[in-house]
């Protein structure tokens, strides 16, 4: 399959690849997918005063999954939790020109965003809004 230039660009130069220490209280972690399905995505956010100041990802999956998570970290940074929660997989599909068979990779990224936010909220016992 031919990849879009944007997918290739993210694959070659992933943004915000890495990890934060899970236990830090300003960090929210979302892990979605399963190894048997061939895709696992970990997204982490660092939150200050209800705003995502930094984000990191690690992904086991195809190039489109890697690009989707890399793009997700870029988009989340600077957003409030409420704003970040509204990121839709369809926007990722559009930005990366993903073909139909790769839509589930973007769904995984949306799920990972939500999981990271939920984790942060659970941890801090707040809804994160200010």
């Amino acid at each position: 399959m031919a990849y879009s230039n944007k997918v290739i660009e993210h694959y070659n130069n992933p943004r915000n690849m890495g990890s934060f220490p899970k236990d830090e209280k300003e960090v929210g972690t979302g892990v979605v997918g399963a190894p048997e399905c061939g895709d696992v995505m970990k997204l982490q956010i660092k939150v200050e005063a209800g705003r995502i100041v930094d984000a990191k990802f690690k992904t086991f999956g195809c190039g489109s999954a890697i690009a989707s998570s890399s793009l997700a970290t870029e988009w989340m940074k600077g957003k409030t939790l409420d704003e970040a929660e509204k990121i839709k997989n369809t926007e990722i599909v559009q930005e990366l020109s993903l073909p139909p068979v790769k839509i589930h990779c973007s769904v995984l990224a949306e799920d990972a965003i939500k999981a990271a936010i939920t984790d942060y909220r659970k941890k801090t016992g707040s809804n994160g809004s200010v």
Binding site: V31, V32, G33, A34, P35, E36, C37, V40, D111, A115
Partner: peptide, 9 residues
């Protein structure tokens, strides 16, 4: 990894 509860989809 075998003991992790994965959130399968």
């Amino acid at each position: 990894l075998k003991t992790v509860q994965w959130a399968s989809h």
